[in-house]
Write a protein that binds this DNA or RNA. Structure first.
Length: 258
DNA sequence: AATAGGCCCAACCGCGACGGT
DNA sequence: AACCGTCGCGGTTGGGCCTAT
């Protein structure tokens, strides 16, 4: 199957976009949306291919894009998410409202990779291309089998197993399982009660604290205080678990619907 | 002042996934 | 089931800008 031609050999314009082109694209999408990118440029009066229009819109012209420098908090978030998700830029971008995958990819290659390496010197340079999550297996299992179809809030049962394989010479591993049955988990307080003060045994005399901290109604932050790993997790929204699932065969999860 | 090198970022390329026929 | 068109994604490129020499 031959690839369909894009911009080449069709007399279409390439390279940087002009203000007039931007305006044409914005005006058209505001009025008609973008149900078909391939047909859009002709309808909008643009001498561009659909792919170029889509990129321009998604990476630059979308009204919800946050312009400007990344904050330190955003940079830290990207570094942490990259530890878990690797180069899944779109997945990382979905956790940073207003930021595009392209933007995050750029900032990673230009700044954050260096910043990460400075703060966590690599012990074995030969494996630097491997995602950092490779030394940590995460197994999450969450079940909410008896979802009540009525308005009553169901009680999630949450089982979590975390296996951590530190890259240090200590070949320690750990696992723990938390069962949180019969909890409504509808308030920050109750969620906090679910997971606070749990200790994860890493070795005979090494303990790692696992803390769930409420952020808002949709998120919880899970901090695994060992080897500086921190994992940000979604509770209601399935985004984070989904991505973990695609990256690790160890992960099994069904989300509760609270 | 000239220039080389690094940084930044918008844009492009090519592949795979997915849905319609 | 196979084919085809479209879209989304990650990798890469290239040009402008900045800074050190």
């Amino acid at each position: 199957m031959g690839r369909s031609p894009c911009c080449e050999k069709l007399g279409l314009k390439r390279g940087p976009w002009s203000k007039e082109e931007d305006d044409l694209l914005i005006d058209y999408i505001k009025k008609k949306g973008h149900p078909n990118w391939r047909a859009l440029p002709k309808l909008a009066g643009l001498l561009r291919c659909g792919k170029s229009c889509r990129l321009r819109w998604t990476n630059y012209l979308r009204p919800d894009i946050k312009r400007g420098n990344f904050t330190h908090q955003e940079e830290d978030t990207i570094i942490k998410l990259h530890q878990v998700l690797g180069n899944s830029w779109s997945a990382i971008a979905s956790r940073l409202p207003g930021r595009t995958d392209n933007e995050i990819k750029n900032i990673w290659h230009t700044r954050l990779k260096k910043k990460r390496n400075e703060s966590q010197p690599q012990e074995t340079p030969d494996i630097q291309s491997e995602p950092e999550s490779s030394n940590m297996d995460i197994h999450l299992e969450e079940a909410n089998n008896s979802k009540d179809n009525n308005s009553e809030i169901s009680s999630p049962k949450i089982n979590i197993e975390i296996r951590q394989q530190p890259s240090s010479s200590l070949s320690t591993s750990s696992s723990s399982e938390y069962s949180c049955s019969n909890t409504t988990a509808t308030s920050s307080e109750s969620r906090n009660q679910i997971m606070s003060d749990n200790l994860l045994e890493v070795d005979d005399d090494i303990w790692s604290e696992v803390v769930w901290a409420p952020v808002d109604d949709n998120y919880l932050d899970l901090s695994l205080m060992e080897d500086n790993y921190q994992i940000n997790c979604s509770f209601n929204d399935d985004w984070f678990w989904d991505d973990l699932f695609t990256r690790s065969n160890e992960l099994m999860l069904e989300l509760p619907e609270l």
